[in-house]
C-alpha cells in the first residue's frame, strides 16, 4: 500500500487484462461500488440527468459491480423522479435521488470506497470548481462533465484543465459510459511504484484506506507563506532584515558545501596520485614471484 492508498498494480510490461464491458471483473465479496452524480446547486443540467438513467450507462455501472446510484438533481428533481419511475430495468443498481443535500461528504466518501468495506466507485459531477475541489480533497475518482448550456460553455475550460493535469476524467455528454470505463481503467493501472517486488500481478482490487481529514493547523513545512510575505512588505525594515539573515545563511551553506566539495576533490586526486605507486609495487612483486618460480 502506498501514499495514494490504492493497491499497487503491475508496472509497465505486464499489463493486467481489463474487464470486458459486459461481465463483472470480480465476484463482489463486499458492498458494491457507489456512484454519486451531482449537478451543483445553481443551474439545472437535464442532459446529464437524461444520460445517467440511460440503458447503456446503467448497464455499464452494473458491469463494474455498482449497486447504488445517488443523484443530486437540483431544480429538475420532479422531472427526474418521473423519468426514474418509468425505468423498467436497472440491472440491480439502486437509484436514489434528491434535490439538494447538505452532506456532500458522506456521498463523496461512499463513492471513494473504503478498504474491506466498499470498492472505489466514481463521482460524476458538473464542472463547477467547488464540487471538483471537494471531490479532489476526498481523493475520489471523478468524472467531470461541463454543462454546455451555460454561458459560452465556460465550464469546459476547467474540465479540460482537470484532464490535462490528470486530476479527473473529462466526461463528454453522449459518451458517459466510456468515461466511467476510462476512470476504472485508470484505477486499475494504479500509481507507479518504485518497488517492483510489491507488484503482485493478480492482487485483488480493494478500496483505499479510510479517509482522514487533513490536519489543522497545517504543518509548518507544508504551509503556504504567501500572506506572511505580504505582511512583511508592510514592514520594509523587518523584511530587509529577514532577507539579509537568509542571504547570510545561504552564503554559509554554499560556502560549507563548496569547501566539502573541494576537500573531496583533493582526496580523490591524492588517491589517484598514489595509485600508480601501488600498482608499481604490485608489478614488482609479481615479477619477483615469477623469478623465484
Amino acid at each position: 500500500m502506498n501514499a495514494t492508498g490504492f493497491p499497487a498494480a503491475p508496472s509497465t510490461g505486464t499489463k493486467r487484462p481489463f474487464p470486458a464491458d459486459d461481465e463483472p471483473d470480480h465476484q463482489p465479496t463486499q458492498l458494491g461500488r457507489h456512484c454519486f452524480v451531482t449537478i451543483g446547486a445553481t443551474a439545472g443540467f437535464r442532459q446529464l440527468l437524461e444520460e445517467i438513467i440511460d440503458d447503456a450507462f446503467l448497464r455499464c455501472l452494473a458491469s463494474f459491480g455498482y449497486d447504488t446510484l445517488d443523484v443530486q438533481c437540483g431544480p429538475d428533481h420532479g422531472w427526474f423522479e418521473s423519468q426514474a419511475a418509468q425505468l423498467t430495468e436497472t440491472y440491480g443498481v439502486r437509484i436514489q435521488h434528491f434535490a439538494y443535500t447538505d452532506d456532500m461528504q458522506t456521498h463523496m466518501l461512499e463513492s471513494r470506497g473504503k478498504a474491506g468495506y466498499r470498492l472505489p466507485g466514481c463521482i460524476v459531477s458538473h464542472a463547477g470548481s467547488g464540487t471538483i475541489l471537494e471531490a479532489l480533497r476526498y481523493q475520489a475518482p471523478l468524472v467531470v462533465v461541463p454543462n454546455p448550456t451555460l454561458m459560452d460553455n465556460h465550464q469546459a475550460e476547467l474540465a479540460q484543465e482537470c484532464e490535462n493535469q490528470k486530476w479527473a476524467i473529462y466526461g463528454r455528454l453522449g459518451q458517459l459510459a466510456d468515461s466511467v470505463r476510462r476512470s476504472h481503467r485508470r484505477l486499475l493501472l494504479g500509481p507507479l511504484s518504485s518497488d517492483p517486488e510489491s507488484l503482485a500481478p493478480s492482487a485483488p482490487e480493494e478500496g483505499p484506506p479510510p479517509y482522514s481529514a487533513p490536519p489543522f493547523p497545517v504543518p509548518e513545512s507544508e504551509r503556504v507563506t504567501f500572506f506572511d510575505w505580504m505582511v512583511l512588505t508592510c514592514y520594509p525594515d523587518e523584511q530587509a532584515k529577514q532577507r539579509y539573515v537568509y542571504e547570510l545563511k545561504k552564503l554559509e551553506i554554499t560556502h560549507y558545501v563548496k569547501t566539502r566539495q573541494e576537500e573531496e576533490a583533493a582526496l580523490k586526486q591524492q588517491a589517484q596520485a598514489e595509485r600508480p605507486v601501488e600498482m608499481l609495487v604490485q608489478d614488482r612483486r609479481a615479477r619477483l614471484e615469477l623469478q623465484i618460480d
Binding site: T4, F6, L136, P191, L192
Partner: peptide, 8 residues
C-alpha cells in the same frame, strides 16, 4: 490539497 485518485 489536490489529491487525484486516478493515477497515470
Amino acid at each position: 490539497g489536490i489529491k487525484p485518485a486516478l493515477p497515470g
